Simulated assay, not measured.
Amino acid sequence: MKPVLAQNFPVRPSLQWSTITLLAGIVLLVVASFASLPLKLHAFFDAEAVRTSIEFLRGFSPPETAPAFLKKIGIATFETLAMSAIGTLIAAFLGVLIGLPASGRFGNTARLATRAVLNVLRSIPELVWASVLLIAAGLGPFAGTLALALHTIGVLGRLFAEAFENCSPLPEETLRANGVNPVAAFLYSTLPQCSPQLMSYTLYRWENNIRAAAILGVVGAGGLGQMLKFHLSLFQMQQAASVIVAMLLMVAVVDGVSFMLRRLMTK
Rank of each mutant, 00 (worst) to 15 (best):
Y204L: 13
S168M: 06
F106D: 10
L127E: 08
M237V: 06
L118Y: 08
R111I: 05
E172R: 09
M265L: 14
V245E: 01
A130Y: 02
L191G: 02
N178K: 12
S33G: 10
K229L: 13
L198W: 02
L100W: 04
G140K: 01
F45N: 08
F9L: 15
R122V: 13
F164Y: 10
Q239V: 05
T21Q: 10
L112D: 11
V120S: 06
F230C: 05
V218W: 06
V132K: 00
F34S: 03
L248N: 00
N108A: 15
A102Y: 05
I75R: 05
N108C: 03
A91P: 01
F78E: 09
L89F: 11
F160C: 04
M227A: 08
A110N: 07
A6F: 08
L39R: 09
Q193A: 12
T65V: 10
L22Q: 09
L15C: 08
V120Y: 01
S36Y: 11
P67K: 05
A246M: 12
V254R: 00
F106Y: 13
L81A: 13
L5W: 07
D46M: 03
G144I: 09
P169R: 10
P192W: 04
G157I: 03
H231W: 12
Q193R: 07
L228C: 08
G87F: 00
S131H: 02
G256L: 15
L133P: 00
G87C: 07
A85H: 02
F34V: 12
A49E: 04
I98P: 00
L146D: 05
G256D: 10
L249I: 15
C194N: 03
N119E: 15
A82V: 13
P196G: 07
A68F: 04
A66T: 13
L159C: 09
I124V: 15
P62L: 11
F235L: 15
M83R: 11
L121P: 00
A213G: 12
Q236W: 05
L170M: 14
A47P: 01
L216W: 03
F93I: 14
T21C: 11
S233M: 09
E79T: 15
D46G: 14
A246Q: 01
T266K: 14
L139F: 03
L148Q: 07
G95D: 05
V96D: 02
L121G: 02
L187V: 13
L22N: 04
F186T: 09
S103P: 04
P101L: 06
G220V: 04
R211E: 11
L89W: 03
L148T: 09
I244L: 12
S189M: 04
R211H: 10
V128P: 00
A85N: 02
N178F: 14
F230I: 13
M199F: 08
V30F: 09
R12T: 15
I210S: 07
L156G: 00
I215S: 04
S103T: 09
A68R: 08
I244H: 00
I215L: 14
S61E: 10
S33Y: 10
L100I: 15
R115F: 02
V245W: 06
V183Q: 07
G157H: 01
